[in-house]
Amino acid sequence: MKSKWKITATSAAIFFGGSFRTSLGDPWFQNLARPNWLTFEFLIPFIWIFIWVCVTISAILVWEKSSRENKPWLLMILYAVLGILTAIYSPVVVALKSLMGGLVVGAMATLLVYILAILVRPILPKASLLLIPYMLWGPIGTYLTWVLIKLNPQSLQ
C-alpha cells in the first residue's frame, strides 16, 4: 500500500475513532449556555473536516518530500499526536462532562500545531501552510471552550 494511503487510513481511523462520542447529540452539552456571538455553531463540524483534510495532506506531503533513507518518523508521530488530541476533545468533554479537560486538550493541540508548522516549514513550506487553518481555528475553539466554562460554572462541579 502506498504511503499516502497508509497516512490517509491512519488519519481516518483517528478521526472516526474520536467521532464516536461527539457533542452534537449530547443533551448535557446541548443544554450549556452559549455566548451570543456563537451564531456559526452548525458550521463547526465542517470546519473540522476541512482542517483534518489539510493536516492529512500536510503529513502526506512531508512524508513524500523526505528522502527514502531519512523519513521523518518524529514528525509523523507529532501529526498522530495532534490527530489524537483533536479526536479526543469531544469524548473528553462529553463522556467526562469536562469542559476543563476540553480546554486543556484543545490548548495542547493548538500549541502542538504551531510547533509542527515550525518543524515542517524547512522540509516543505507548503505543508506548513496547510496547517494555517488549524492555527487559526485552534485558538478560537480553545477560547470558545474557556467562554463555555465561564458561562457554565456549574459544569466544573
Results as ranks from 00 to 15, higher is better:
residue 2 K to D: 15
residue 2 K to P: 15
residue 3 S to I: 03
residue 5 W to T: 11
residue 5 W to Q: 14
residue 9 A to R: 05
residue 9 A to S: 14
residue 10 T to I: 14
residue 10 T to S: 15
residue 12 A to M: 15
residue 12 A to H: 08
residue 16 F to H: 09
residue 18 G to S: 13
residue 19 S to H: 03
residue 19 S to C: 13
residue 20 F to G: 15
residue 22 T to R: 05
residue 22 T to F: 05
residue 23 S to Q: 09
residue 25 G to M: 06
residue 26 D to Q: 06
residue 27 P to Y: 03
residue 28 W to N: 08
residue 29 F to E: 11
residue 32 L to A: 09
residue 32 L to D: 04
residue 35 P to W: 12
residue 35 P to Q: 10
residue 35 P to H: 13
residue 36 N to K: 14
residue 37 W to A: 02
residue 40 F to A: 14
residue 42 F to I: 08
residue 43 L to H: 04
residue 44 I to A: 05
residue 44 I to G: 00
residue 44 I to N: 12
residue 45 P to M: 03
residue 46 F to G: 07
residue 47 I to D: 01
residue 48 W to H: 02
residue 51 I to E: 01
residue 52 W to G: 05
residue 52 W to I: 01
residue 53 V to A: 13
residue 54 C to V: 09
residue 55 V to Y: 07
residue 57 I to L: 14
residue 57 I to M: 09
residue 58 S to M: 07
residue 59 A to R: 04
residue 60 I to G: 10
residue 61 L to Q: 07
residue 62 V to F: 06
residue 64 E to I: 11
residue 64 E to T: 02
residue 65 K to P: 00
residue 66 S to W: 06
residue 69 E to M: 13
residue 73 W to Y: 15
residue 74 L to H: 08
residue 76 M to R: 09
residue 79 Y to Q: 01
residue 81 V to A: 09
residue 83 G to A: 05
residue 84 I to G: 08
residue 87 A to N: 03
residue 88 I to F: 09
residue 90 S to D: 14
residue 92 V to F: 06
residue 94 V to G: 05
residue 97 K to G: 01
residue 97 K to H: 13
residue 99 L to D: 03
residue 99 L to Q: 08
residue 101 G to D: 01
residue 101 G to H: 06
residue 105 V to L: 08
residue 105 V to C: 12
residue 106 G to F: 09
residue 107 A to N: 01
residue 107 A to C: 02
residue 111 L to V: 15
residue 115 I to D: 01
residue 116 L to P: 02
residue 117 A to W: 06
residue 118 I to W: 03
residue 119 L to H: 00
residue 119 L to Q: 10
residue 119 L to A: 12
residue 120 V to A: 00
residue 120 V to K: 10
residue 121 R to W: 08
residue 122 P to V: 05
residue 122 P to R: 10
residue 122 P to M: 10
residue 123 I to V: 12
residue 124 L to E: 10
residue 124 L to C: 03
residue 124 L to R: 03
residue 124 L to I: 03
residue 125 P to K: 03
residue 125 P to E: 02
residue 127 A to E: 00
residue 128 S to Y: 09
residue 130 L to Y: 07
residue 131 L to Y: 06
residue 135 M to R: 12
residue 137 W to N: 10
residue 138 G to P: 06
residue 138 G to D: 05
residue 138 G to F: 05
residue 141 G to Q: 05
residue 141 G to K: 02
residue 142 T to I: 12
residue 143 Y to I: 13
residue 144 L to Y: 09
residue 146 W to P: 04
residue 146 W to N: 08
residue 147 V to H: 08
residue 148 L to C: 06
residue 149 I to F: 07
residue 149 I to L: 01
residue 150 K to P: 11
residue 152 N to D: 11
residue 152 N to A: 02
residue 154 Q to E: 14
residue 155 S to R: 01
residue 156 L to Q: 14
residue 156 L to V: 10
residue 156 L to E: 10
